[in-house]
């Protein structure tokens, strides 16, 4: 699983920053059938959350209504230097995570 995070490398204290995340995932709905007619089991990302400097700032529950390779974007206020870390779990129990350092000065 490849994932990409985009945050500014540096921000001023109190500055509103944009955080973007793109995760490679099939987001299989469970409603489709393969070429042999067998149902393809559902496999979507269930939960996704983002911690900034150890504190959860964003979380989402995803499901079959979200297309493959989900892309999310939101904003937060830069307070102190720390890691922005995303972690997620899918239906098969596969967990992924990705982090990037934000320097506030």
């Amino acid at each position: 699983m490849t994932a990409r995070i985009q945050i500014p490398a540096q921000a001023k204290p109190g500055e509103v920053i944009e955080i973007r995340v793109l995760i490679q995932h099939p987001m299989e709905t469970g409603y489709r059938y393969d070429d042999a007619g067998k149902p393809i089991p559902r496999n979507t990302i269930r939960t996704l959350n983002c911690r900034y400097d150890g504190i959860e700032i964003f979380s989402a529950e995803l499901g079959p209504g979200i297309g493959a390779n989900p892309y999310l974007q939101f904003t937060t206020v830069a307070r102190a230097s720390g890691d922005v870390e995303f972690s997620w779990v899918d239906d098969e129990g596969v967990a992924g995570s990705e982090r990037q350092r934000l320097v506030v000065a």
């Binding site: 490849t2 994932a3 990409r4 985009q6 973007r20 793109l22 490679q24 493959a68 390779n69 892309y71």
Partner: peptide, 9 residues
């Protein structure tokens, strides 16, 4: 260049 899902590949 960031959101283009092809960039994952």
């Amino acid at each position: 260049a960031f959101a283009n899902p092809g960039m994952l590949w």
